[in-house]
Simulated scan of single mutants.
Amino acid sequence: MIEITTKEGWRDHVNTVHERPAPITLQELRTMSFGDRALYNQGRAQYSQAGAFVRTPQFEAFQRAVRDRVMLNAYRRVGKLGLILSGEPGQGKTTSLVEIGKAHERRRREVGHPAAGRGKIPVVYVAVPAQCSAKALMHEFARFLGLPVLHRMTYGDLLEVVANALRRCSTELVLIDDVHHLDLKYRQNIEASDMLKQLSERCGGTFVYAGIAVEGTGLLDGQRGGQIGKRFEVHVAVPFPLDSTEEKARWGDLLLAMENSLCLADQRPGSILSAAVTLHALTGGEIGLLKDLLQFAALRAIEDGTETLDLKVFEHDLRRRQTAAALRPETPRQSRKRVIAR
């Protein structure tokens, strides 16, 4: 498994490309030798899990916003602009953050940009540990960059070393994941939040945060939050709705892209659309839950040799869930709500 919180791991992640296996018929798959079929299945699993990425309208809007700010911040001395990707678990925030960083670095390499030259680090990825102090967060930056950290080094020393390294390495994009761990009810987290602002002003990179319900952490509240709120645009990752015709079309596009990524030999393209409403009810429109649900179903189809999604299983799962919900005892709060509604 590639660890992307070090520059070596991140570089391996950017370099790794999982190509889609060549499509074959069910008959061709069945005539393969055991070893060849095992290799083909491994290639399908790698592509489905790590190679395929579905570009949703939400992702594309966020990626455009990142590109705009990278361009503008390159010419700003102070008041750099940033972005925050917020949302509940299962909305693909980390996946989106990492994909944006990977796409940015690959784009820089392809055009021969100086930021991707020898000894440069165009993208830095850091995950915020729980209950993180400013010094501990500086250690995470130093760990990614491979900087030696001495015990006698103060917070100020670390800030200076990290900021200098980011400038020398021409870092353009600083991705900070799990920023919800910076809950400002705790003093050490306030210090860490202030440190990020200082670091942003002292290096040329565009800072992009991602976390769970960031709006409720206090990061955007008060005097400190006022500055962040003015300079950082908040994008909220939400489940796919299914109300309007346009929203149903977007959900259908997502299902078609997911279906294609599974690489099943006997899956008729577009057949998944007949289960669109069922799949939305099962997942609540959450892309993470949908991906897991379909990949487990694809695994069963590969193992039993059918090589096609059993859509009836989804309907059965939904009926079973609905029955269980109907038999579940009412909580006192639900009972009071029902009485009030009368």
Rank of each mutant, 00 (worst) to 15 (best):
E3A: 12
T6D: 03
K7C: 12
R11E: 14
D12Y: 10
T16N: 04
Q27P: 01
Q27K: 13
R30A: 10
F34E: 14
G35H: 06
A38Y: 05
L39A: 13
Q42D: 13
R44D: 00
R44F: 04
Q46S: 11
S48T: 04
Q49A: 14
A50V: 00
G51V: 09
G51M: 07
T56H: 03
Q58D: 14
Q58P: 06
Q58S: 12
A61Q: 14
Q63Y: 15
R77H: 12
R77Q: 14
V78R: 15
G79I: 07
K80I: 00
S86H: 04
E88A: 15
Q91W: 02
E105N: 03
R108L: 15
R108H: 11
G112L: 06
G119D: 15
G119T: 05
V124G: 05
V124R: 02
Y125I: 13
A130T: 11
A134L: 13
A134F: 11
K135N: 06
K135S: 10
L137Q: 09
F141S: 05
F141G: 02
P148V: 06
V149I: 15
R152M: 09
M153Y: 10
G156P: 01
D157P: 06
L159E: 14
E160H: 12
L166P: 00
R168F: 07
C169W: 09
E172T: 09
L173Q: 02
L173H: 01
D177F: 00
D177G: 05
D178Y: 05
V179S: 05
E191T: 12
L196V: 11
L199E: 01
S200K: 08
S200H: 07
E201R: 11
E201D: 13
V208E: 03
A210Y: 03
V214S: 05
L219I: 10
R224H: 10
R224P: 00
R224Q: 11
Q227E: 08
Q227W: 09
H235F: 10
A237N: 07
V238C: 05
F240C: 03
F240N: 01
L242E: 08
D243W: 09
S244H: 04
E246H: 03
R250V: 03
A257C: 02
M258A: 12
M258S: 10
Q267S: 10
I272Q: 04
A275H: 02
T278R: 05
H280M: 04
A281W: 01
T283C: 08
E286F: 15
E286S: 10
G288E: 07
D292C: 00
A297M: 00
A301P: 02
E303N: 15
E303T: 10
G305E: 04
L311V: 07
L318P: 01
R320K: 12
R321W: 06
T323Y: 06
T323Q: 13
A325I: 04
E330Y: 09
Q334S: 12
R336W: 10
R338F: 03
R338V: 00
